[in-house]
Design a protein around this nucleic acid. Structure first.
Length: 384
DNA sequence: CTATATTTTCCTGATT
DNA sequence: AAATCAGGAAAATATA
């Protein structure tokens, strides 16, 4: 059953041309040397496919909520807001949200890909509108929006003040978010063994006074938020792991018994990663991918066709940080979903599959299927 | 940490 | 002949 599939959201797949981060070395890379045939085989494939690559899609990155880490650049720190480009705005937003003790997964950052000038003009209400997203508690989004808005206003007024002080503006020394030195070693084996590390532990507290509660066991946004206001997080006395040389003030506080107020709400921590069927659904509902590389064959029957199987596989690989993904392997993953009727095969037709009874929800507010349908027919004629 | 679910890799054999 | 399909097997990852 694929009841875990998140509802489709616009911008769920996001396409952008940011430089791709250095690919993580995977153990799989080395397996090539264990199998002589695979080595030659692989070369052959990659060479022949290179000829078909379309530059536009080559640099495309399928974005899902998981890789906001692409926006970890810090250019924005050295510019005035008015000079921020879209990426600067997003980078700032993500970092600010984290400094405030929120999870980056609560931030629908793709709604904030705006130039700094537009951000400046944004009213509190608009920030809120953009912050709202189906998977996050609206109250949480509201607090996040408010807090972010305040931060923005602070920065803007500080800029104004500095502008009067000196005509030459430099932001560096006033940076409220000094980043700690990167703790990265070339020989760090962890980075080889677990790619998740990138988004689980890449996160470094920038403001310890605010972040005290953000990284610990609290699931509750209320707790996190309150700790930033009153600095009264819970004290772990039993195992002793948190006591000792830590902050003395903490010892005088003890969490009152019972469930903290408002702790029943669910906030999004790390969202479940996108499954193969979900991924397909997302592409199918996104006009940036839909007719071009994958399209509906028959929306009513949930049938779809791969136009460029290798491009789809490449996107999947990109999303999973796996440069070795091929349609061959991707389709194997698809076939495993036959068992549960999430997908069903369409015999005789090649590159055509179908969502089964347990498939993801494919409804959408703006179906572009009508147009697709006619293109289908055209292509059909040409093909045969 | 354990168990289950999903995905990746590789492979054999069949089909178009 | 090259692509695509079907699954088995096993290992790797992800999630509960």
């Amino acid at each position: 059953m694929i009841d875990y599939a998140r509802p489709y959201e616009q911008n769920m797949c996001d396409l952008y041309l940011a430089p791709t981060p250095p690919a993580q070395a995977r153990l799989d890379d080395f397996q090539v040397f264990k199998k002589g045939t695979a080595y030659i085989y692989g070369n052959y494939y990659s060479n022949s496919y290179d000829a078909y690559q379309e530059p536009e899609l080559d640099t495309a990155v399928y974005h899902n909520l998981v890789n906001s880490r692409e926006y970890r650049r810090e250019d924005w720190k050295y510019k005035v807001v008015a000079d921020w480009n879209e990426d600067d705005t997003v980078s700032w937003l993500i970092e600010t949200a984290q400094c405030l003790g929120f999870s980056e997964y609560d931030v629908p950052f793709y709604n904030f890909k705006v130039h700094g000038l537009d951000l400046k003009l944004m009213k509190r209400e608009e920030v809120l509108q953009r912050m709202i997203t189906p998977n996050v508690d609206p109250m949480l989004s509201r607090r996040l929006a408010d807090a972010v808005f305040e931060k923005l206003q602070n920065r803007l007024s500080e800029e104004m003040y500095r502008d009067r002080e000196s005509s030459v503006f430099r932001y560096v020394e006033s940076d409220p978010y000094q980043h700690s030195d990167a703790v990265q070693t070339v020989l760090d084996l962890d980075s080889l063994e677990h790619k998740n590390r990138l988004y689980t532990s890449d996160y470094r507290p920038n403001d310890s006074s605010l972040l005290q509660g953000a990284c610990d066991s609290s699931d509750d946004a209320e707790d996190v938020f309150r700790s930033s206001e009153t600095a009264s997080p819970e004290y772990y006395g039993s195992d002793g792991s948190k006591s000792g040389d830590e902050d003395d003030k903490r010892k005088s506080f003890k969490r009152p018994p019972g469930r903290p107020k408002g702790s029943g709400r669910k906030i999004s921590k790390r969202p479940r990663s996108v499954s193969v069927p979900e991924f397909l659904r997302n592409l199918l509902l996104d006009p940036r991918y839909c007719p071009s590389i994958i399209k509906w064959e028959d929306h009513a029957q949930k049938k779809f066709r791969f136009m460029k199987p290798d491009e789809v596989a490449k996107l999947w690989g990109k999303m999973k940080q796996n440069d070795n993904m091929t349609f061959e392997k991707f389709s194997r993953a698809m076939r495993y979903h036959y068992r549960q009727s999430v997908l069903v095969s369409v015999p005789t037709a090649r590159l055509v599959y179908q969502f089964g009874p347990k498939g993801p929800d494919i409804t959408t507010a703006n179906p572009s299927m009508v147009k697709v349908k006619s293109e289908t027919d055209v292509n059909e004629v040409i093909f045969s």
